[in-house]
Amino acid sequence: MSTHVVEYLHPIYGIMAEFETPGELVEAARRTREAGYRKFDAYSPYPLHELDEAMDLHDNRVSLATLVGGLLGCAGGFGLATWCAAVAFPLNIAGRPLISVPMFIPITFECTILLAGLTAAISMIMMNGLPSPYHPVFNVERFANASRNKFFLCIESEDTKFDREDTARFLETLQPEEISEVAR
């Protein structure tokens, strides 16, 4: 294990630890949280649902946005069908009521799905801060492996508990493969 020291006087983005297995990463994330760090992130080549729990992530703004999008789609779809069939061009179809509810359900359903899906995707991308042409973590060369077979945890210098030496020492107790400082 080695610690790559970026020029000491410059502020850094954070300190990053590299792990071999997803289990180690989840365990490391849990212990990092327990140690009192809040501004840190975990990076994995594939989704690890256990990380949400380990990092205590309770941000459900995407779910809420999806719900609102779905409700708008539901109301919009039904409204559109109603407006077309009962207001804009009232048409008597075999004596059924103008607002022929069962016939409107498929379009209402489809609009709900469409708007909920689009809202989920768009709000997820926006709230993730994407597109992001520059991110400091890529300053660490080995981070390229985060999209292949390695697992990373980065404690950011913005964390109130962050201290260049203490944090590095703490990360060492998690027994990572490697620890690197991340340049800004």
């Binding site: 075999a94 059924r96 069962p102 016939m103």
Partner: peptide
Amino acid sequence: NFAQLLITWSGN
């Protein structure tokens, strides 16, 4: 259930 209702409603 809805599929049955929709078809019945359409056919009448």
